[in-house]
Simulated scan of single mutants.
Amino acid sequence: MNLIELTIIANTRAALANVKNVYQHGMGTGREEYLKNIYAFHALTKLGADDAGMSADGAKALHELEQEHAAAFVTALAQNPAAMAAIQDATA
């Protein structure tokens, strides 16, 4: 992977860590911060598409982060339904 791919992956990981923190602990008053991170996460993972120009390893890393997000989301729905409902209400 080249430097730009490593940077994209690092930024994607950072956004995911912030999103997962909200999933685990609730949003509190951080609606804008949550939205910034979830939108950044989704925008960055789109760079893993087949036609985006990422190397196979870079695309694989982004797909793995997407899977990690999906797992965290499902876990949060089961373990913290009140916080997840608040997130849905705040983003509607």
Rank of each mutant, 00 (worst) to 15 (best):
A71I: 09
A76T: 12
A56Y: 07
D57M: 08
E32N: 06
A10L: 07
A86Y: 05
A76S: 10
T12F: 04
D51S: 11
T45K: 04
K36Y: 04
A85C: 12
A56F: 04
R13Y: 03
A70G: 08
N80D: 00
A61C: 11
A49D: 11
G53E: 09
T12K: 02
I87Y: 05
A17K: 06
Q88S: 10
L6R: 15
E33A: 11
E66W: 08
I87G: 00
V19C: 04
D50R: 06
A61I: 03
M27Q: 00
A86G: 03
A56C: 07
I4S: 13
L47Q: 12
I8P: 05
A49W: 03
E32I: 07
N80T: 07
A78F: 07
A90K: 02
T75P: 06
D51N: 08
G53M: 12
K60S: 04
P81I: 12
D89F: 11
G30I: 02
N11K: 09
K60D: 13
E33R: 11
A90M: 02
A70I: 04
H42Y: 07
S55H: 03
A83W: 01
A83N: 14
T7C: 09
I87K: 01
A59E: 02
H63G: 03
I38E: 02
A43D: 06
L35M: 04
P81H: 08
Y39I: 11
H69F: 15
Q79W: 06
Q67A: 15
A72C: 04
E68Y: 11
D50Q: 11
E66C: 14
M1T: 05
A86H: 06
